[in-house]
Design a binder for these strands. Structure first.
Lengths: 252, 252
DNA sequence: AGCTGTGACTGGTCCGACCAGTGGACTAGG
DNA sequence: CCTAGTCCACTGGTCGGACCAGTCACAGCT
């Protein structure tokens, strides 16, 4: 009656993989927490009953995944790292670098994400959070007189507040990661020292309009302005033929 | 006049890391393409002038990042893998598992992403693409009579079409990844074999309404229905206190 | 008590060895 | 001639031992 046992392909599980699994599982179970230390490599050799090569290969994998960090000479052993989006960003950067993702896709993604987050935030925000947003605006204004990097940080803080209000850290993570990827892709082209101040002032103006719209409870308008700002800010880096697609994203 | 040379902290670069960098750079430059093979470990030892341990640690890192795959006995050497979102998903799953991300955040993210994608799609879609969407609807209807997994696949195909129309593969990737994470988180709770058919029928009905709205060019309505559907579909798995936040995402 | 020098231990790298498994070349059979 | 089977060179996985530069805690000195 049974048609076929539905066998699945099986590949050998290597020793170092099982070590990785055990460590990661301990992390998920909470037996291991960030800041804690793993036993030294030679101690792990004894516990797992494998050779040091195997232990080291497992540690390299964990290290590349951002789970632990080994420092030579540290008597406390490898350190369990706090969870971070660094590994996530690394993977995204890889995808972007090999041209699986174009710059316009990344920017389009941010336009959608940021717009959606702002729309949600305009509904959920408390008066205190509105004040918080206004403060980041002041910080942005002050940063303009410092340098471009400072302005970028202040801008990041603004978007962080938005994401926080929208009660979704995944949005925040995605925005930060994609933002970092975009900046790394256009970093070599940021030679526009000339008009940068004007661009920053315009960006600040747009942000202020966003806050105004949020204050008025007009989520649609806020989101639209945000997308417009994003487009103006990055459009010059996008190939002509992709700009139309991005423009289509601006209006609601 | 210069205040300080602005020194930055420096940590030693390990040999295996430089091997990883060289391989990844070759990949980005296009000197290495998916399907091609790396030299054997012993050959790499000669080329990089390091020990096999070092080469192997580099290969383990590349392997864990989804760049290559080593198979014992293969005379052709490690294989360069096609770029995939698997590594990306792995990182997201890790974040979700350690409770940095809650189920409601993941679902909220999907509501926003999917809604935005549908809204964009309703504007950009061609008549052919509309037909394509309608075909996935038919496939979903047929899948209901097979089993739950088949319905899930058909549902995935629908969302793929949407993401494709929105001309943004990053949206597609994010949706797929997050969808996979959500399913893996609730997989143990899918014991609702009883009412599943009714649920599938309702979901299909919602999808059909979405397509209707897209056909009519009403992006707002389409997005709203999509979010509502997403909420109905997953709300039972979300803790009570988080549901209100999700409900706030449904309207406009 | 405060400082310093030392030494046990750390991780990074290297070497050589063995094993099970793979796949292509080579050979025997058609 | 072509096919089918065998064989072996070579693969990656794992092991154990060795050496080095660096770090940190502690004992001993001032």
């Amino acid at each position: 009656m049974t048609k076929s046992p539905r066998f699945e392909p099986v590949q050998p599980v290597r020793a170092y993989q099982r070590i990785v699994e055990q460590v990661e599982e301990a992390l998920i179970r909470g037996d291991l927490a960030p800041g804690q230390r793993l036993p030294s490599e030679r101690e792990l050799v004894a516990q797992f009953e494998v050779s040091r090569s195997t232990v080291r290969e497992a540690l390299r994998v964990l290290e590349s995944n951002g789970v632990v960090r080994s420092r030579p000479g540290d008597p406390n052993g490898p350190e369990i790292l706090p969870f971070s989006q660094a590994a996530l960003r690394k993977q995204l950067v890889r995808l972007a670098r090999v041209d699986e993702l174009t710059l316009s896709e990344l920017i389009g993604f941010r336009m959608i994400m940021d717009g959606a987050a702002i729309q949600v935030a305009s509904r959920l925000r408390t008066p205190e959070q509105l004040t918080e947003m206004e403060e980041t605006l002041v910080a942005m204004r002050a940063a303009i007189d410092v340098d471009f990097a400072a302005f970028g940080e202040a801008d990041l803080a603004f978007h962080d507040v938005i994401a926080q209000i929208s009660r979704n850290s995944l949005i925040q993570t995605c925005n930060e990661v994609v933002r970092g990827v975009v900046l790394s892709l256009i970093s070599d082209k940021i030679a526009h020292a000339g008009n940068s101040r004007a661009l920053m002032l315009e960006s600040l103006q747009h942000h202020a309009e966003v806050v105004d719209a949020i204050r008025a409870g007009n989520g649609h308008a806020a989101a639209r302005i945000a997308r417009q700002n994003m487009y103006d800010y990055y459009a010059s880096y996008v190939p002509d033929e992709d700009r139309e697609t991005l423009r289509a994203l601006i209006d609601d």
